[in-house]
Design a protein around this nucleic acid. Structure first.
Lengths: 391, 391
DNA sequence: GGCACTTCGTTGCACCGGGCAAAAAAGTGG
DNA sequence: CCACTTTTTTGCCCGGTGCAACGAAGTGCC
């Protein structure tokens, strides 16, 4: 009745969501028969993805006690590389998406993509050998801003780095011996939120990312929506920004041109709020209590919220997650976001429908690894075939 | 390897798309094995959904000739009821979505939903008995503007009719004895376009409907996206309209308030272009060569196109279909639509990515029936169980 | 301790749907 | 009538699931 691996995938997902949990409960949660649960648990345990835990069993007075199963986080891991403007973020995650090791590697020569990727791969191998040599790496996920062709594993265009048609997957696979999956920033984050985030595990989700790039990702019941040209989620040039600001795209008032980290930091710098045009500095100032800095970040949040409201109306997802510095670091911004979305959206969202991102400073590493974890969770039994070790 | 009925569904879909077609070709198109094609064809033929046709066989010189199969349009039909402001449109469609009989039934008392629905049901039964008594009805689809809860089959809110929480499905099922499915206007049309429209059979599609209601529907790889509250596609209150026009929602500049049929007809009337505030009259005038009328409709199209471009950027579907009077009836509007979308969208759409609706005056009937046809095409073997005749 | 009772987990069996491969069918050309 | 080609069917096996019976692991009562 189900596609191959679907049962195992649903089962693994239920275990991920509901912590250590008894097989009977899994059956109830997934709609599978107890028999199927047993069999799939055995299969997944055989692959090292699940374990029986001797957890504290809250015995319920009658009957045979539970023997809870849980995700096995001690045997495998997944690697992630996030490619940013100035550095790569490397991360090793366990199967619950928790960061077990992390490293930031600045680009030696940003123009030389081969060097950047080779360095990242080598450092990743070392990171693994030094920190978690006992864990078997299952794969490598790569997240990058810009235009990514997921199918081909190619970074088609990364504007700020100036890369074009870089075969990221093949380069990294050759260097690490791992299966590599590449996806865009926003989509990776969206999936990470859905799998591991505080957002819960809603069926549909929209992720709005605001950094130097402004991008959105849409997940519906059918999975991540990539769009005809892998270009879905193009909110960068919505006319929600300051009409006085010209955008490289040729028009003015574009969202990205107005609220990108660079643009906003510059604005704060010019206003004399901070001493260098750096968004981090602006955030630090606001956290430290600088009222002008806070006000500026709240103002940015208000603009971002209009985009969130738009997405909310058009896609009507269960939840909209926003990754933006202010929203993550300042409660004032989180409040402003909710208030503004509630005011602009047509269908009034419940307060829990608009959430800041859940991954603090690890966002990027989690996102990258999530690309690979997503694939594993989608078809866990597939690990049978390509048992490739290599790092 | 596939969910139940998926193979049959894919097969039927391929036959629908590629006209009479040989089994081998179907296997190639669907990726199924020839054996599976044979078996599923037999099953579907047994249900009366497919037939072997003795078509003109273009023999290719060697080997056993094709025996093409095609959708069986002579045995079954599907009924549709579209509920509009002043009347219901009834239609009987064959399995290719072609209208075989049609009837428009004005509401006797628009406030009395029971009477409206009962009348429609009775007239539908009569329509069937008079025109196509030999065809077995498989089900009834209902499309309505406003807020529809598809699960429950309830019309939650129809603003212009003032209906609230009308259990459309149960009322009509009781009266006709047919399985009834209800969905919103835009989603029904979107599905109709995808199944039967000139839009081809793209995986992802956005439908923008502009009538007295402005609404959009999103279909992605995973199917029609309904959203958390069945409210996806809420473009009515995007701030793309005339900021001077107040909307009942409390804000101003809303798209619907500006470009709805009613609003625009009124505008044309006040400008002295037509003698009554009727959008049909405006359309007729434009078709007859009235330059002012044409200009007004083109102007509306431009505004509508901005919404289309927005949807194009955010969702990035294979194709955007627009159902709006001007675009359908006037080549000038169709051209303006394409030009404006190309100018406003960030990712430049190919010319064929923005299309006017394909169903001329039958739109509404087709849309309604498509709700049911969609379900049949999604799981054709399911007809085994509820073989309910009744009309 | 033994037994009834309850709930959890497993195992045996049949079924469904699909792929593979061999066979049958339906043409043409010699 | 036979060789040849391509389409279609049939037989067989296999993976995965549900159902139902069974085994397991506790408590509580006598």
């Amino acid at each position: 009745m189900n596609p191959r691996g679907t049962a195992a995938s649903a089962l693994l997902g239920a275990v991920l969501r509901h912590g250590p949990v008894a097989r009977t409960t899994i059956a109830r949660l997934t709609g599978l028969s107890p028999a199927a649960v047993t069999r799939n648990c055995a299969a997944l345990a055989g692959l090292g993805l699940l374990t029986e835990v001797a957890g504290p069993l809250p015995y319920r007075g009658m009957g045979r006690p539970h023997t809870p199963v849980d995700v096995e986080t001690g045997r495998h891991l997944v690697a992630g590389i996030h490619i940013a403007h100035e550095h790569c973020t490397l991360a090793l995650l366990d199967l619950r998406g928790r960061v077990r090791a992390r490293l930031r590697v600045p680009h030696r020569d940003p123009d030389d993509h081969e060097d950047v990727l080779a360095t990242a791969a080598d450092r990743l191998v070392r990171l693994h050998a030094e920190h978690l040599p006992g864990h078997v790496p299952l794969g490598l996920g790569v997240a990058a801003g810009g235009w990514v062709d997921t199918e081909a594993g190619v970074l088609v265009e990364h504007t700020s780095l100036g890369w074009r048609d870089v075969p990221v997957r093949d380069l990294l696979a050759a260097r690490t011996g791992l299966p590599v999956l590449v996806d865009s920033h926003a989509r990776a984050l969206a999936r990470a939120e859905q799998l591991f985030g505080a957002a819960g595990h809603h069926e549909s989700l929209v992720h709005l990312f605001v950094g130097n790039v402004v991008d959105a990702a849409i997940i519906t019941g059918g999975g991540t929506h990539r769009g005809a040209r892998s270009a879905a989620g193009g909110v960068a040039h919505l006319a929600l920004g300051d009409p006085a600001i010209d955008c490289p795209c040729g028009r003015s008032g574009c969202l990205e041109a107005t609220v990108s980290d660079r643009a906003w930091a510059w604005r704060a710098y010019e206003a004399g709020v901070i001493s260098r045009p750096s968004i981090t500095e602006l955030g630090d100032a606001a956290v430290a209590g600088n009222a002008a800095a806070t006000a500026l970040l709240v103002e940015r949040t208000r603009i971002v919220a209009r985009a969130a409201a738009l997405l909310f109306d058009i896609v009507n997802p269960d939840v909209v997650v926003v990754t933006e510095l202010g929203v993550i670091r300042l409660p004032e911004c989180a409040r402003a976001l909710r208030a503004e979305v509630a005011a602009s959206a047509r269908v009034c969202p419940s307060p829990s429908a608009v959430l800041p991102s859940s991954f603090g400073p690890d966002v990027l590493g989690v996102a990258a690894g999530a690309v690979q974890l997503d694939a594993i969770y989608a078809d866990p039994l597939n690990l049978r075939n390509p048992i490739r070790l290599g790092v």
